[in-house]
Computed example of a mutant assay.
Amino acid sequence: MFSVTYAQLNIWLTAFLWPFTRMLALIAAAPVLGNKSLQSRVKIGLAAFTTLIVAPTLGPMPQVTVFSASGVWILANQVLIGLALGFTMQIVFGVVTAAGDLMGLGMGLGFASFFDPMADTNASAVSSLFNMIAMMTFLVFDGHLQMIAALVASFQSVPVSADVLGAAGWRQISDFGSIVIATGLLLSLPVVVALLIANLCLGILNRAAPQIGIFQVGFALTTLVGITLTLMMVPNLIPFFGRLFDIGIDEMGRVAGGLRPAG
């Protein structure tokens, strides 16, 4: 008769549950895979399927009972690691959103907003356009697979344990967040500068010939200039986004290394 002891059941459960928790936390926090339009059961199924493939390669897990205090602490650690790695990639998409918001504001389209399911809030029309291009580029470049591969590699950098996670990983995320403003401004700089020059010219023309009423057509003119420059940028957006995604994947590895428990 086939029988299973409690110790064997605990080993099987921990070998699946802890990697599954880290994987599910990543999927919940990551861009594209964590999209709210994707059903929860699909996310859970994807995390479970990936875990079944990865778990046999991870080696033995800590000899801790799942429902003990140490087991619950290990579970919390896996959630934090997965969320940290997923949030790192979300910062990359924050660059795209910031650039779109800056461009839309300069074009006078700040009021033209749509609901963004990724951010669960309203976003400008330009920001939504950039987000869609970024998501398609992310899938075309297999960014979702690279992201999962980075999480699998994190089991070597941050093994499953009850040790306190290193603070360097959280500082790494904080420092990485500074690129949202810098890179977002760099991406939107051509359009922002061109619109600034256009508005400056309109102001000078209005002072020189007030009877023209230049501000009656100024909004349409700045919008037209902004849309034209945005269309000219589109062919160069895909390689730019590709470099951003590579930076994000590399940063995931550095964050995982920083989260390694001390000692």
Rank of each mutant, 00 (worst) to 15 (best):
M1C: 00
F2C: 01
S3P: 04
V4E: 12
Y6H: 10
N10V: 03
A15H: 15
W18D: 02
F20M: 12
T21E: 04
M23A: 11
M23E: 14
L26C: 06
L26S: 06
L26R: 13
A28T: 15
R41I: 11
G45D: 00
A47K: 10
T51Y: 08
L52W: 03
L52S: 04
L52Q: 02
I53N: 00
V54Q: 13
V54M: 09
V54H: 08
T57H: 09
P60I: 04
P60T: 07
Q63N: 11
T65F: 05
V66H: 07
A69V: 14
V72N: 11
W73N: 09
N77A: 07
L80I: 15
A84F: 01
G86C: 03
Q90A: 08
V92E: 01
F93H: 13
F93D: 03
A99V: 10
A99E: 02
A99N: 04
M107Y: 09
G110P: 05
P117K: 05
N122S: 14
A123V: 12
A123G: 12
A125N: 06
A125I: 15
A125G: 05
S128P: 00
L129S: 08
I133V: 12
I133F: 10
F141L: 07
G143E: 01
H144W: 04
M147K: 12
A153I: 03
F155K: 02
A162E: 14
D163T: 07
V164N: 05
G166W: 05
G166Q: 07
A168I: 09
I173C: 07
S174N: 12
I181A: 02
L185K: 07
V191H: 07
V193M: 12
A198G: 12
N199Q: 15
C201I: 14
L202T: 06
L202M: 13
P210W: 10
Q211T: 10
I212P: 05
G213N: 08
I214P: 09
F215A: 00
F215G: 02
Q216G: 15
G218A: 15
L221S: 13
T222H: 09
T222K: 09
L224N: 02
L224K: 10
I227Q: 05
T228W: 11
L229D: 03
M233V: 01
M233E: 11
V234R: 09
P235I: 11
N236Q: 13
F240V: 05
G242M: 04
G242C: 00
L244E: 06
I249S: 01
I249D: 01
L259C: 06
L259E: 05
R260L: 03
